[in-house]
């Protein structure tokens, strides 16, 4: 009765989910060279796994010097936005099978921010723009003794922009931001939108004034790169246009 067992083992190995994938990673180490270079890694990986799993395999089994950010690994913390096959995505939400594993998968740091090492960029200019729009509730008068109530419709008005995880996929996909990094960028505008259209907030006018800057909403060229890049499916470009409209209609 050994034969059936053999058959089963053979069938199982024939149906192995593993395939060989090439990861083409943009490497940069300022302590070694001022130039960034591409490095290829061959991996045995289940195509139902994610790009982040591939990066883990590289870091844990092949080359421990590979440097990248990740924390939650489940699309919530926004640490691992990177340019995968030329598009900004979260490595932890991108399945290998969805991005054509036949060809080498390119993995680069997001554009427009200074690369510190490999896939790690300096997020400081990005967070500076975020802080500039005052991303916190501003109210006057006495604190209520209970929750600040709001109708379901009022909550719905800014629901979309509450989903932002500050991964910088949108801002670093914006060609205007790539140029000189002075543009506030989609993410900061999205987070301003979240408070400008919140009925409980009282600093909407102030935030609109901040975004009426030379490098504010008016630099948006409506390319929709940000909407395409957002891993949370936020309608980023729409939010920016709503801020533009608010600026015009509240003034005239």
């Amino acid at each position: 009765m050994a034969t059936p067992v053999m058959d089963k083992v053979e069938a199982e190995s024939a149906a192995s989910p593993y395939i060989t994938v090439t990861f083409r990673v943009r490497r940069f180490n300022p302590e070694v060279s001022a130039e960034a270079t591409w490095e290829d890694f061959q991996l045995e990986i289940d195509p139902k796994e994610r790009v982040l799993d591939g990066l883990h395999k590289i870091k844990w089994d092949l080359d421990g010097t590979l440097t990248f950010r990740r924390s939650c690994a489940h699309g919530i913390c926004g640490s691992d936005a990177m340019r995968i096959n030329g598009r900004n995505r979260l490595a932890c939400k991108t399945l290998i099978k969805d991005i054509n594993p036949e060809k080498p998968i390119t993995v680069e740091p997001i554009k427009g921010l200074t690369v510190l090492k490999d896939l790690v960029v300096d997020m400081e200019p990005f967070f500076q723009a975020y802080r500039d729009v005052m991303p916190f509730l501003v109210t006057t008068g006495n604190e209520p003794t209970r929750e600040r109530l709001q109708s379901a419709e009022d909550r719905e008005r800014f629901d979309d922009t509450t989903k932002c995880i500050l991964c910088a996929a949108c801002t670093s996909s914006c060609p205007v931001f790539w140029n000189d990094g002075q543009y506030f960028g989609p993410a900061a505008i999205v987070n301003a939108h979240r408070f400008i259209f919140d009925s409980r907030d009282e600093a909407g006018e102030q935030r609109l004034e901040i975004l009426n800057d030379k490098d504010g909403v008016w630099r948006c060229r409506t390319t929709f790169n940000c909407t395409d890049a957002c891993p949370r499916g936020i309608e980023v470009t729409k939010a920016i246009q709503e801020v533009k409209r608010a600026l015009i209609t509240r003034r005239f």
């Binding site: 200074t114 690369v115 200019p125 000189d180 004034e209 003034r251």
Partner: peptide
Amino acid sequence: PAPVIEAPRKRTAKTPRSTRGNFEMAAWL
């Protein structure tokens, strides 16, 4: 120490805030 890589043109608290105004809005309209 390894060389520090400065981010280009950081927007810091020291950056002047005089860049606001309605000119860009007028141009857009």
